[in-house]
Design a protein around this nucleic acid. Structure first.
Lengths: 202, 202
DNA sequence: CATTATTGAACGAACGATCGTTCATACTAT
DNA sequence: ATAGTATGAACGATCGTTCGTTCAATAATG
């Protein structure tokens, strides 16, 4: 065992508490939104005293930042999907399906909307948001460019812009599915059709 | 003069005050967001006493509802653009340009995002939001269907879904333009290209 | 037309609740 | 013995709303 894992029982318990708090915060933010959620709400839901929460986090804002950082790591699997060596249209279809599935969980959509609307006025959260996005876009751009080079996609004027549009179509469709109570699976077909038509050569 | 305008001086002054309050509220919501804005902020910015604000509005929530209703009426001009009898692709292009121009003002984007994120947990605001959207979509659907009938667009599987996607592409692009400080005019070209490719026959 | 009632705009103090945060203190694993 | 977890009371600030009151414009009355 590497000594980097010199985790005492106490350390493990502390890490567990932290996660409890974070999970409780996510639930609260989903239910009531960030600003309607009080620190007491989070502490109570996590089964932790008010004062103790401040032993684990400097403040309410930092809890949100940490949640935003966790969301950031959720894109990893999609990057892998995008980097598969199959024909570009197939890979793109796979990505659309995978991302749509992720977005078919309303929690993911709502939490993302919550973070986005906080990002407007909180620069550090905006930065996290943009970094995550940049990762995803960059990987999607290489896929689109590969598709063009292999003759599977038309030669779009700007692969970066197109990549943004693809992601945004998916996310805003997911938002609509939440607001209009339409399951994502009834939407994703149209998205697939629309995107593939937009990229079709000729 | 019709007696429906039996507005006394007092009535006119009252209407003016109401508008002052609404405009102040919009500015506050843009600057700090709905929940960070206190009723005192709105009253102060409107040049009105705290107590008097409650003579004009039942409460803070109702101010937001009224603002959402005002936003609702902003779509009118776009409906007119969509109903022009020119060839469908030309009309669509005109609409994209007009809507993009509207969305190139960050206030419109941010206020819309603010209202959207309130709509998640406030059913009456969600209803306003969905009503407005339904109006726009219905008009866009008839345009798309006309374009298909006239052979200018391909026969898409679902004109309603496509219409939603077109609107959502525009709005989410506008959101991106706000977050990444990219002027909308540098984005709208790609949007036009993407949408027209997606609708191209063959 | 002059006068009184009545209405509702306008004000800011005050209310009770809740907010995020700090604090003194007890306790326990190291 | 020490360092860090845990607790809940307490703090000052701010929240949305209500309240009693003043005052001017309108409506009703003569």
């Amino acid at each position: 065992m590497p000594d980097s894992k010199a985790a005492t029982n106490r350390d493990k318990a502390t890490a567990k508490r932290r996660n409890q708090i974070l999970e409780a915060a996510v639930m609260c933010f989903l239910e009531k939104g960030y600003h309607q959620t009080g620190v007491r709400d989070i502490a109570a839901r996590a089964g932790v005293s008010l004062g103790n929460l401040y032993n684990h986090f400097p403040g309410k804002h930092d809890v949100l930042v940490e949640i935003a950082q966790l969301e950031r790591k959720e894109v990893g699997p999609f990057l892998e999907v995008l980097m598969k060596p199959s024909p570009a249209p197939k890979v793109l279809d796979g990505f659309i399906g995978a991302y749509a599935k992720y977005l078919s969980a309303p929690e993911n959509v709502i939490l993302s909307l919550e973070i986005t609307s906080e990002a407007i006025r909180q620069p550090d959260i905006a930065r996290l948001f943009l970094d995550t996005r940049e990762n995803l876009i960059a990987t999607l751009v290489t896929l689109v460019e590969r598709g063009i080079a292999e003759g599977d996609f038309r030669s779009v004027p700007n692969a970066n812009q197109v990549s943004h549009l693809i992601i945004e179509i998916l996310e805003s469709s997911a938002e609509r599915s939440v607001f209009s109570n339409t399951p994502m699976r009834k939407i994703v077909g149209s998205v697939r059709d629309f995107v593939s038509a937009a990229l079709q050569p000729q």
